[in-house]
Write a protein that binds this DNA or RNA. Structure first.
Length: 590
RNA sequence: GGGGUGGUAGUUCAGCACGGUUAGAACGCCGGCCUGUCACGCCGGAGGUCGCGGGUUCAAGUCCCGUCCACCCCGCCA
């Protein structure tokens, strides 16, 4: 018998009862006479008391207790004496007087303290992940992950979706991210790939008449890591038949509203705002805008042309743009601080950063290039008032948007303009194709099975594959969902018409053989009566990171990898024995 | 592949610009005392490959070069 209940579950009604509890020694306070131990399990902490008057043996043994020993105690639950309650913990009015102590497991001194108020290095946290996960904050994250996946499954089930597993050992798809490869022993020289997503299989399930599929599934991409990117990550993968974009969007909004209400008691306001890709780029400089911030980029080209500042005029005549951003309350920045801001802008790709302080008049090295009336128009358009700093970037459209888009967020943070809460939005009307200068051809922006918008289908079908302008203008029936500046999902309505698919491969400059080799089985399947279908995949890790307020998805993954894609706990990846390589017909070339 | 921050006791850090006593602090650990603590308190003690390798120097934790690791970012991530 280890326990009658968990530590955090002991309540007022247990007063007077004899209970057995088990857990870890969180903290001990040994007064010589009385010994207090905070006993911890995943549900919480309760104070247990060792008194020589209650049990001399237990009291004696309790002197040997150390941090993180695993113990079982038996004794009477009592109300704490007046004035000794601890209002900081839920069980703070109670304590258990130990009459019997069993030490189940001793613990070596820990490599780091679990109640450490200071941050421990992530290296140690990952190497001793089992200790890190004992911390209540990390346990809360695991619990939230469990709850959210459970809620998603309940919701999808209630909507008639089937969770169907797709293969982990599958076929390499050279388009897109780098694959993780797995050698096949019985097929020398052949390799499986771990899936970057179940994309092809879920579409085939639609052909199979499954109608509504979902899966909470691991995906693998061998690319460099970031705070929000791990080599293996989890998607909530969804595919539906006989739907259009609105059906998918509605389903996802409903699901997220359900999950946020049940898991966080947060009511999301629906419908989520929507922006076209072009609008998002114009107003926020990014296709994943953080809408907790009202600040927007403003067109300045027309006003720039009324002045004589060469940098602006040259950018425009070179086909670039001039846009501005209002730095609220930043007119007081020193020269040094503005230099730092300029360096930041340069790190985002801009050649420089033009600025005008609104302080009484207009204070700036470039003010002299503009009539006062134009300066006033600039301020008015940016919403800049006395005490604000107007910022300008003049460059190619891409650089202008990237630089100001990032400055927008960094200024918003610095100036404390960011609202709390969860700001969702949809980004729609993505370009169907993107020119890849390296490969000298168009590539699919989403993936090659994404349907063009209805009105663009004739354009595509009649387009000359060399007509870059027309092809670049085609819009896709694709959608991304964004939360607080993070892309947390994306999807599309798929092509189910063979003539459109064929034409798309043509403009992607993929030969029949290449198509056959890469996606042949899906193309084949689409011949045999494919329903119109579409879907979406949500990044579960990123969603959870934002839900729990973590800075990295590593904090919502039980056993994440480092930036070099290593598991510090297990030591993976590692060399293998010569014999294993031989079986797989692999020779190393290091 | 590139840019940045960090690496000194078990942990978190100071020391490094300006090289020069025995490399410090807090927490933790060990021993002792302590019957109402809750980050218990008091007294005492142990604990260091200053990430690793090389170089400069009479002398390197400190300066130089290289390298490894962790983190942040760019590229990359259909």
């Amino acid at each position: 018998m280890f326990r009658d209940k968990c530590c955090g579950e002991v309540g007022e009604r247990d007063i007077g009862r004899i209970l057995t509890l088990s857990g870890w020694v969180f903290r001990r306070r040994d007064h010589g006479g009385l010994i207090f131990v905070d006993l911890r399990d995943r549900t919480g902490i309760i104070q247990v008391v060792f008194s020589p008057e209650v049990s001399p043996d237990s009291h004696e043994l309790a002197h040997t207790l150390r941090t993180e020993y695993v113990i079982t105690v038996r004794g009477e639950v009592r109300r704490r004496p007046e004035g000794t309650e601890n209002p900081d913990i839920p069980t703070g009015n109670l304590e258990l007087y130990v009459s019997e102590l069993r030490i189940l497991s001793r613990a070596a001194p820990l490599p780091f303290m679990l109640d450490e108020p200071k941050e421990v290095s992530e290296y140690l946290r990952l190497k001793f992940r089992y200790l890190d996960l004992r911390r209540p904050e990390m346990y809360r994250n695991l619990l939230m992950r469990h709850r959210v996946t459970k809620l998603v499954r309940d919701f999808m089930d209630s909507k008639g979706f089937l969770e169907i597993e797709t293969p982990m050992l599958t076929k390499s798809t050279p388009e897109g991210a780098r694959d993780y490869l797995v050698p096949s022993r019985v097929n020398p020289g052949h390799f499986y790939a771990l899936p970057q997503s179940p994309q092809l299989f879920k579409q085939i399930l639609m052909v199979a008449g499954v109608d509504r599929y979902f899966q909470i599934v691991k995906c693998f991409r061998d690319e460099d890591l970031r705070a929000d990117r791990q080599p293996e990550f989890t998607q909530i993968d969804v595919e539906m038949s006989f739907v259009d974009m609105e059906d998918v969007i509605n389903l996802v909004e409903e699901m997220l509203s359900f999950v946020f209400r049940e898991a966080l008691s947060v009511d999301l306001s629906r419908p989520f705002p929507r922006f076209t890709y072009a609008e998002a780029m114009e107003r926020f400089g990014t296709d994943k805008p953080d809408l907790r911030l009202d600040l927007e980029l403003k067109e300045m080209g027309d006003l720039a042309e009324k002045g004589s500042f060469r940098v602006f005029l040259d950018a425009i005549s070179d086909g670039g743009r001039v846009k501005g951003l209002c730095g609220k309350g930043m007119a007081g920045l020193s020269r040094r601080e503005i230099d730092l801001l300029t360096e930041e802008a340069q790190s985002y790709g801009a050649k420089g950063l033009a600025w005008i302080k609104v302080k009484g008049g207009f204070d700036s090295p470039i003010a002299k290039f503009f009539p006062t009336q134009v300066l006033e128009q600039m301020a008015e358009r940016l919403g800049a008032e006395d005490g604000d700093l107007m910022l300008f970037v003049a460059d190619s459209e891409e650089v202008v948007h990237n630089t100001l888009g990032r400055l927008r967020v960094s200024i918003g943070r610095r100036q404390g303009l960011m609202r709390d809460g969860y700001s969702f939005c949809w980004i729609l009307d993505f370009p169907l194709l993107e020119w890849d200068p390296d490969e000298g051809r168009f590539v699919a922006m989403h993936h090659p099975f994404t349907s063009p918008k209805e009105e663009d289908i004739p354009l595509l079908l009649e387009a000359d594959p060399q007509d870059r302008q027309t092809l670049a203008s085609l819009k896709a029936r694709a959608y991304d969902i964004v939360l607080n500046g993070y892309e947390i999902g994306g999807g599309s309505i798929r092509i189910h018409r063979p003539d459109i698919q064929k034409k798309l491969f043509e403009v992607l400059n993929l030969s029949h053989d290449e198509v056959e080799e890469k996606f042949g089985f899906l193309i084949e399947a689409l011949k045999y009566g494919a329903p119109p279908h579409g879907g979406i995949a949500l990044g579960l890790d990123r969603l959870l990171m934002l839900m729990v307020g973590a800075d990295s998805i590593r904090d919502v993954i039980a056993f994440p990898k480092t930036q070099k894609a290593q598991c510090l706990l297990s030591g993976a990846p590692s060399p293998v024995q010569e014999r294993q390589l031989k079986e797989l017909h692999i020779k190393l070339d290091l």
